[in-house]
Write a protein that binds this DNA or RNA. Structure first.
Lengths: 242, 242
DNA sequence: TAGACTTACTGTCACTCTGACAGGAAGACC
DNA sequence: GGTCTTCCTGTCAGAGTGACAGTAAGTCTA
């Protein structure tokens, strides 16, 4: 505050998206192959610069969601994940990224032929493996997004966002098992899910078959927070003990 | 992507701080009275613009923490809270704020005579009441910060950040009661806290008195996450049921 | 020095929730 | 009609929680 007309340094804002969905009982994220420098040819999260001076951040996220993934704002969970603003994260200068986490139900087909040169659903395990180098700090952002989803499955009804408008309890269990990466006991899962009032509500007498006994259909209930939380079997908790 | 030399709109970045502490068993936040326009004279969260082009975001938070609150980086929890970037939140133009949540142990005295015209610890209940109008969207940021602290007390060892290097179990219970705003049973609290391995560890045979029987001293343990979580009596959970 | 008082701490008991099993119900396929 | 698959309902022991009583170890007061 020494000078009177000191001007703060301007920065450029990007919005990056961690879009998660389930495909064949496996957690996938949408990645694009970058068509321009920097990191041309590398895999990256979909995203882009703020459109104009007056664009709201979440509106920008919705816009990118539509442009790069063909996803409308309906039936889609979208929440802010965090800011990533290390000074050297982008060689073009000071670019700060606002990351959003989107949860989408299973979609017809991988989107392509849109703005991004190529968009493909990639298993997160593969995307986070050592040999797949993501652009910028997108590996960190993706890791944080998956962690956030794992945590929110414990205490919120977020899991239903992975499903369509109606779903069976088995499908919901698939979500938990895929995101957490651990098997769950179906019987205890049935009991728990049905005991939490307002989590899922029956969706008519309709049923759909898949080889065995037809399953009842449910749809998301009004409850958004789970008390008590859904318990996740500890696998990483013990290494934090030491 | 119609033009080849389209330039993204630059924005200005501020770092705002929600600094929480306990004073007389009551949750307080540090607020300053703004000395300049806009919102001159109104109460606001401490914060300021990014210092220079190469400044890291968390470093900027630490800098503001030192300038406006006199708090060093030691013995202080600091984490990112979120981004607040509504287009009309600042009349000066497009100013996007990165909010950080800081938890500080009880400090000697309210800081003043530093950069800000006036800094004072304010009970959060009072700061969030209708008659105290905070500048910008700082009421929302403060609300989010308090909510974040409430949630993290359930599943992490964050409560120890409110205490000094050593503390008694009663002091720790004070933290939970003040942040959650509900009374807890001391006996159950003792049992729970001591049963979670690595949460708190005895700090020597020393004791300090406060009128009654001397209490054992503890210090934070290596455990950062609590499994199973500390249970919060439901008060707002039932209104989410409807 | 013997209370009274304050705070710290240890147990106990009933209840709920969870994890780990077995077994029946309802369709499709052969 | 059997067999397969998937869906769904119970049962039981152990862990964890909420509610409550009682003891321990200091200070203060008379």
């Amino acid at each position: 505050m020494s000078g009177d007309h000191w001007v703060p340094p301007p920065v450029l804002l990007t919005v990056d998206l961690v879009i998660l969905t389930l495909r064949e009982s496996c957690l996938h994220a949408l990645l694009i192959e970058r068509g321009i420098e920097p990191h041309q040819g590398a895999l990256a999260l979909p995203g882009g610069f703020l459109g104009h001076e007056k664009e709201d951040l979440m509106m920008a996220a919705h816009r990118e969601l539509a442009e790069e993934a063909g996803l409308g704002p309906d039936q889609l969970h979208l929440e802010q994940l965090g800011v990533y603003g290390a000074p050297d994260r982008d060689p073009r200068g000071r670019v700060v990224s606002v990351a959003y986490l989107a949860i989408a139900p299973r979609l017809p087909e991988p989107v392509a032929g849109t703005d991004a040169s190529q968009a493909c659903w990639t298993p997160v395990e593969q995307a986070l493996s050592v040999d797949s180098q993501l652009a910028f700090d997108h590996e960190q952002i993706l890791t944080d997004g998956v962690d956030r989803a794992r945590e929110k499955l414990e205490r919120s009804a977020l899991a239903t966002a992975f499903c369509g408008p109606t779903f069976t309890i088995s499908e919901l269990q698939d979500v938990y098992e895929a995101v957490w990466g651990v098997p769950l006991d179906a019987r205890n899962f049935y009991r728990k899910v049905q005991s939490v009032d307002g989590f899922i509500v029956p969706a008519g007498p309709s049923r759909k078959t898949d080889g065995g006994r037809p399953a009842r259909l449910f749809r998301p209930g009004p409850r958004t927070t789970l008390h008590p939380p859904m318990m996740r079997p500890l696998s990483e908790a013990d290494r934090e003990t030491a």
